[in-house]
Write a protein that binds this DNA or RNA. Structure first.
Lengths: 199, 199
DNA sequence: GTCTATAAATAGATAGAC
DNA sequence: GTCTATCTATTTATAGAC
């Protein structure tokens, strides 16, 4: 795990060309390709080409294909967990759930590729980066579970958290992948109605 | 697409050895391996070995690796959709939703590997079998959506269906993958409370 | 209809120039 | 620190024996 010494970072892919945003370009390209085709179906050649760098640079910066993917998961997890924690901070009950669903949808909209990777990998157990993906899952679910435990002690925290997270994630991806013309508000309304209001 | 002429079919994997359950053994082995490692990370050699047949038999029976996976998806979809339709049949409102969640959890419990494959592939767009997986999604969501449309016309059918399906699927897989000692009843209670009861 | 052996292509990874 | 060229292993797929 190297340190990132340059805080500039344009971060977009395609022709990183000249500088140290090489790492960022590679990560962006990896998420984009893996979200669409899966990790094993994505070659390091593909990643290098999409990132606008040579294959050797991928190995110089990340060591191996598996290590690269672990970095992708770890960085994505950091962003996601921080956003969820910030959204829930200081809130309880319906207010907290509403904020969490809202923020998770924002994250899905802002990082749709990572969301796809997450849903594709989260329940697999036979892969090298199993521990990394499990950490993403644990920490994300935990934010929901803590809110549930604090506000509705009679409910099962972890299973309820999984249900809420799953409802938001699947509805959010359904929206992005198949109904992209809809607004976020439609999705938020549908999820919150499902999770918060009685039928 | 060949016809299956033998209705006997022990259907279990490992040492199909002697007869025409070769196809069934291959499919079972494929779902098991792919659910754990993903499609591209699973080689035809692995599949043949797990199924107890030679690699040549895989190609003789299915033509290609991609065609084999399409068959897996199509067969799984047929089972899942039929079960959901049967569960919802003649019911409406909360009763129908309860029956659908219950049946979906039963299917996840009965075919956990297919459930994992489904969640891993359902939002990918860059794969050969895109159309097959889209059909699974469409038909499964449709059962939920029809119930919603018929009973709660003010709600968005497709997004609400996605939320309900996602809540059940993710909670169900959370259960099987990480809390297998719990009973189905716990999961059903948690999902139904989340989806049907107000917070 | 299933097997073994092999062909042809592609993958991850490394060496060394710049 | 990034590039090009190459090595080696693995993979999908096929041919032909049984």
């Amino acid at each position: 795990m190297q340190t990132t010494e340059d805080p500039a970072a344009p971060a977009q892919a395609s022709t990183a060309g000249s500088r140290r945003d090489t790492r960022a370009a590679i990560i962006t390209a990896t998420v984009a390709l893996v979200s669409d085709r899966g990790f094993s179906a994505t070659s390091v050649d593909d990643i290098a080409e999409r990132a606008g760098v040579a294959k050797g640079s991928v190995y110089y910066n990340f060591g191996s294909k598996a290590a690269l993917f672990e970095t992708v998961l770890t960085e994505g997890q950091r962003t996601l967990t921080a956003a969820l924690r910030a959204a829930a901070d200081g809130r309880t009950g319906r207010d907290a759930v509403g904020a969490l669903v809202h923020e998770l949808l924002e994250q899905i909209q802002g990082h749709p590729d990572f969301a796809k990777v997450l849903v594709a990998e989260v329940f697999r157990t036979g892969r090298d980066w199993q521990d990394s993906i499990r950490q993403v899952r644990d920490e994300s679910f935990a934010v929901f579970a803590e809110v549930v435990a604090a506000s509705w002690p009679q409910r099962d925290p972890s299973l309820t958290a999984a249900a809420m997270f799953g409802a938001t994630l699947v509805a959010g991806l359904e929206w992005l992948a198949f109904q992209p013309d809809r607004g976020v508000a439609d999705v938020r309304r549908a999820v919150l109605a499902t999770v918060l209001d009685p039928l």
